[in-house]
């Protein structure tokens, strides 16, 4: 037990040190690298807090994809040399808000929150047999609180539509070399396999659509960075279909229940497992497409947005 105290205290100290590094390091590049390390450590902390779902999501999205995104954004974003009065005002306001938030959080943590250890919560455990899946996190995300997940997908879709209209997608770097191509040929099938495994596993163990989608998007990032191996060509219609698939499947499954006199998104008990897998499969593909586009920072088709069926691509 003593040993775990040492591990936990080290983790806490490292978190604070890395957070300070990502705020105060000398150059922007160093700050980004500190931030990526911070994300990786956060994943370890979630794992230590016995929340493997969050650990997986944090490692894939927080450290991996966000890291790639920030590194790719670096050359265009230079820090301003002198601080203007407006900057100082923003600093003071954020400091004040952060202090306020800290006070409120401490008040909530010390007074309101009942401490529950062991199983997630009795309410979920008691109704788990109605969920169609045996993993409590997936049961909450895709069944008991499916409405929240549906709206999350819609928010992601809106963000992606915004990104699509910003600019053409970022060009792939072309100097990666033969060794990188070989690695990509090894990694790509493994990444796709891992995504499929995470998707299937979501029913009874940590995993699910968001993690699987993030891993698939990582495969796109690897492809883009390598520059040698390319995605097969796709049309605008296919891109739109991929983007909307998750939300449309989710909505139609939910609406069909209304026609049968059930509540929105209330799955029939016998079908719940298969329906959740169907929704998650669609969501995985859509999330992967959305995250890839967010990384690319724009629309990937050359003749955007006129093209109907032209098979042209730049990534």
């Amino acid at each position: 037990m003593m040993l775990w105290w040492v591990v936990d205290l080290t983790l806490c100290a490292l978190m604070i040190a890395l957070a300070a590094g990502s705020l105060f390091a000398a150059t922007l590049r160093r700050r980004v690298i500190f931030f990526i390390a911070f994300g990786l450590l956060t994943a370890i902390v979630w794992a230590r807090l016995q929340a493997p779902d969050l650990a997986l999501a944090e490692a894939a999205i927080g450290a991996g994809l966000t890291g790639a995104l920030l590194l790719a954004a670096l050359p265009t974003a230079q820090p301003t040399e002198h601080k203007r009065d407006a900057d100082r005002l923003i600093e003071w306001v954020s400091l004040l808000l952060a202090a306020l938030l800290a006070v409120v959080l401490i008040a909530v943590l010390t007074t309101l929150l009942p401490v529950v250890d062991g199983d997630p919560s009795l309410a979920v455990t008691a109704r788990l047999s109605d969920a169609g899946v045996s993993h409590p996190v997936t049961a909450v995300l895709l069944n008991f609180r499916a409405w929240d997940t549906l709206l999350e997908l819609a928010v992601l879709l809106c963000a992606t539509i915004g990104v699509l209209n910003l600019a053409p997608a970022r060009k792939a770097p072309r100097h990666a070399g033969a060794l990188a191509d070989t690695l990509i040929r090894i990694l790509l099938p493994l990444l796709i396999l891992t995504a499929g495994y995470l998707l299937w596993n979501g029913a009874f163990a940590p995993g699910g659509a968001f993690q699987a989608g993030a891993v698939l998007a990582a495969a796109t990032v690897v492809l883009h960075l390598g520059g040698g191996v390319r995605l097969p060509p796709f049309s605008l219609a296919q891109l739109r279909g991929l983007l909307a698939l998750g939300l449309l499947l989710f909505l139609s499954v939910g609406l069909v229940q209304l026609a049968f006199g059930q509540a929105l998104l209330q799955y029939p008990l016998a079908w719940a497992g298969s329906l959740i897998l169907l929704i998650e499969t669609g969501a995985t593909l859509s999330i992967a497409t959305m995250l890839s586009l967010v990384y690319l920072g724009g629309h990937p088709l050359r003749d955007w947005p006129v093209a109907g069926d032209s098979r042209d691509r730049e990534i």
């Binding site: 100097h175 990666a176 070399g177 060794l179 990188a180 070989t182 690695l183 090894i186 990694l187 493994l190």
Partner: peptide, 20 residues
């Protein structure tokens, strides 16, 4: 084995970039 492959390639890529 996976780490062997990826660290080899990463090392090569970073070195390549340094020289470049």
């Amino acid at each position: 084995t996976l780490i062997l492959c990826s660290s080899t390639t990463n090392g090569y890529l970073i070195a390549h970039h340094c020289v470049w």
